[in-house]
């Protein structure tokens, strides 16, 4: 068997640190145990793609480019006009999607290994995010359940607000260590714990 490795394995062992006031007002970590498949429709296949997703995921393709569709073990993101991400805990679903999405239905590309999913959670999470992304984080602009594709230090990320004080970042794998160090440096004044979650939803 091939062992699967997180690029953050050494970093996650590094532990947390206290903030300026002696407290740790955030948890920063990696969420594991999920699969990501990008799917797309071409000009004539939108309906066929929607039907395949409806059949295999049990939900419609999202129409909003801002709001995450949460559906059982799956989360769907509309990342461009006719391109979507499906993140799921169920590997069988991505495999089934890859099989079902034949060229006349659309295209699918596995991206599970291309991204690392970071979770930043706690009272100082929003203040921290304001230091690393050029995004309006006020709740009217980025409500709970919405997402934005943006950049951290010139590398693209998908930022999801999964709760008022909880953010998830899908970062490019090859930038993950650099992004991690950047986030931890920005989090210094607030203090943080480091954690790994196998089945975060």
């Amino acid at each position: 068997m091939f062992e699967r490795r997180s690029p953050l394995a050494p970093q996650l062992a590094g532990g947390g640190r206290d903030g300026a006031d002696g407290r740790r007002s955030m948890r920063i970590g990696e969420a594991r145990g999920w699969h990501l498949i990008q799917i797309g429709a071409h000009r004539r296949s939108g309906a066929a793609l929607a039907a395949a997703v409806g059949r295999l995921c049990g939900c419609a393709l999202p129409s909003s480019p801002r709001i995450v569709t949460a559906c059982g073990a799956h989360r769907l993101y509309r990342i461009a006009a006719d391109q979507y991400w499906i993140v799921t805990h169920d590997a069988a679903v991505t495999a089934a999607l890859a099989r079902a999405i034949t060229p006349d239905v659309g295209a699918s590309t596995a991206l599970t290994h291309a991204r690392v999913r970071l979770v930043i959670e706690g009272a100082a999470a929003t203040a921290l995010l304001a230091r690393i992304v050029p995004i309006d984080l006020r709740s009217a602009a980025l409500p709970v359940g919405s997402f934005a594709q943006t950049g951290v230090q010139h590398a693209c990320v998908l930022l999801e607000r999964s709760d008022a004080q909880r953010y998830e970042l899908y970062v490019l794998r090859t930038y993950a260590v650099s992004t991690w160090e950047w986030i931890l440096d920005s989090a210094m004044p607030y203090g943080y714990d480091v954690h790994v979650a196998q089945t975060e939803q």
Partner: peptide
């Protein structure tokens, strides 16, 4: 931190 660094898997 001057610039982001890309690391191979």
């Amino acid at each position: 931190h001057f610039r982001p660094i890309r690391r191979s898997p």
